[in-house]
């Protein structure tokens, strides 16, 4: 899969000697129309767009992403709308590779095969299914691979060496390293040095896999982690959307400015 959009993006960023910037927003937040506009604006600065398939029992998420998720669901987002948003986004001029991030029940209810087929149809490049860990994800990730969709494996500070080796072996173009034991949006309570140490463990097993770091990454912390292949910012963006809504400001401009600032910190 060396020619996947994701792999090419990482390659390009490496040539520019910087990590890829991955942004996360929940589809339909604050509403369907605005979330598409946010996505479009963000993609001017971001390298890869993660799009959340909101689930109301999002066990991996902290307050900020939960707020975004509940707002999106309240404003009527359905899976079919999320696919519609991705399809429309991928047709825009500055579209970036898209990763759908969500929970397994959304996939099951849509139907595994139907879900993958639809992803392919609308141009989804990768999938992160938070509550489908290795080895339970073996079948599903194989199906994704057969359909040229990257299944992104998650590893964390407590992943054993035994599991790490096997997970990396079964991974596709991208691996997601969870920086700390926390839900999303927690304060980064581990030092960049500690993260680097674990990051190197992963790279030592296979240096060709693109490893991104997520959880606890904000405007404050991002520049300390520039060594990574990619960095994911989610909760801080979701928080900005919430803040904009409360202050009756335009979330599109605010989020876009934030992502621009984030990008400047890792160039």
């Amino acid at each position: 899969m060396s020619s996947s959009n994701l792999a090419n993006t990482f390659k390009k960023c490496k040539q520019e000697n910087r990590p890829a910037l991955l942004t996360y927003i929940v589809a339909g937040d604050p509403n369907k129309k605005k979330s598409f506009e946010i996505l479009k604006a963000v993609s001017l600065h971001a390298d890869i767009c993660e799009i959340g398939v909101g689930h109301n029992c999002n066990t991996g998420d902290g307050k900020q992403i939960q707020d975004s998720t509940y707002r999106a669901i309240k404003n009527g987002i359905k899976i079919k709308d999320t696919f519609r948003i991705v399809k429309k986004f991928k047709k825009t001029k500055n579209a970036k590779p898209c990763i759908l991030m969500g929970y397994y029940n959304s996939v099951i209810q849509y139907g595994e095969n139907r879900f993958i087929k639809k992803c392919k149809q609308v141009g989804v490049d990768g999938l992160i299914i938070v509550d489908l860990p290795w080895p339970e994800n073996k079948n599903f990730s194989k199906k994704c691979k057969r359909n040229s969709i990257n299944f992104v494996q998650l590893v964390s500070p407590t992943t054993s060496k035994y599991r790490l080796k096997r997970i990396i072996k079964d991974s596709h173009d991208m691996i997601y390293y969870i920086s700390m034991l926390s839900t999303t949006g927690g304060k980064l309570k581990v030092s960049p040095k500690e993260i680097l140490k674990n990051y190197q463990k992963i790279k030592k097993i296979n240096k060709n896999k693109n490893c991104v770091i997520g959880f606890g990454i904000t405007e404050k912390t991002i520049s300390n982690l520039k060594f990574a292949d990619g960095l994911v910012v989610g909760s801080e963006i979701c928080k900005e959307i919430s803040k904009s809504s409360t202050k009756r400001q335009n979330p599109v401009t605010n989020v876009s400015n934030m992502v621009k600032r984030l990008k400047n910190k890792i160039i």
Binding site: H55, N56, C57, T59, I73, K78, I79, Y103, Y104, N105, S106, I108, Q109, Y110, D131
Partner: peptide, 21 residues
């Protein structure tokens, strides 16, 4: 109720057609 995944386990769970609990 239909089968779905909640809190990491496959089970019969009260949900809507989109899989929201």
């Amino acid at each position: 109720s239909k089968i779905g995944v909640l809190h990491g386990a496959l089970q019969y769970v009260i949900q809507n057609e989109d899989g929201q609990i």
